[in-house]
Every structure is written in structure tokens, then in C-alpha cells.
């Protein structure tokens, strides 16, 4: 089982040096996690390191393919508020 980085990753490098298994590598268009190497940080840290520092909600999926940091969990912006504001900007 492994975590996975998806396309919303902004390539900020924060996670790469933290990975205890060297599973994270720079790639285009975005960083990736080598599923064979990822240990979910078990035995090394209480929390998965990439998930704990990633600033982008939804950019990392947990082993069940769910966002490890769901919408609103990092920015504190309620998802409905975000949708409302984005719709308003689109309609301008």
C-alpha cells in the first residue's frame, strides 16, 4: 500500500527531503511516489511525512485513493464558500 501524488501537485519540493524511504522523486509534470518504496512512514513516523507538509489539498491520495488532505482541511476555507466564490469569479 502506498500514497500517491496527483496532478494538483505544485512541485514545491517540500515533501521530497522528508520521505524516510526515498520514495518521492522529481518528475514531470509533477512529483511522484514510488509505490514499491513507500512504507506510509510506518516504523519511522507517527504521521506520513509527505501528507503532513503538503500545502495543497487533494494533491496526495491515501492508499484508499481518497484525498489525504481533503478540501478545507489545510486552508480552513469551507468548500462551499470556495465553490461560491469561484462561481462568482467565473461569471464576471
Amino acid at each position: 500500500m502506498a500514497y500517491e501524488i496527483i496532478e494538483s501537485c505544485v512541485n514545491c519540493w517540500a515533501c521530497e527531503p522528508l520521505c524516510p524511504s526515498d520514495a518521492i522523486f522529481e518528475a514531470r509534470p509533477h512529483f511522484k511516489i514510488d509505490a514499491k518504496k513507500c512504507t506510509e512512514c510506518e516504523g519511522d513516523h507517527v504521521d506520513p511525512q509527505c501528507v503532513s507538509i503538503c500545502p495543497i489539498e487533494g494533491a496526495i491520495l491515501n492508499p484508499f485513493s481518497e484525498p489525504a488532505n481533503p478540501p478545507g482541511s489545510l486552508t480552513g476555507i469551507p468548500p462551499e464558500r470556495m465553490e461560491e466564490v469561484m462561481a462568482e469569479i467565473q461569471s464576471r
Binding site: 505544485v10 514545491c12 519540493w13 517540500a14 507538509i53 500545502p55 480552513g76
Partner: peptide
């Protein structure tokens, strides 16, 4: 220096 170790409410890393 792209990485950050905190989040500020006036910043958007995207």
C-alpha cells in the same frame, strides 16, 4: 526556495 513549512492565510501556494 520553493518549499514552505507553514501556511499563512494571505498566501496561496498554487
Amino acid at each position: 526556495a520553493p518549499a514552505c513549512n507553514i501556511q499563512c492565510h494571505y498566501c496561496n501556494r498554487k
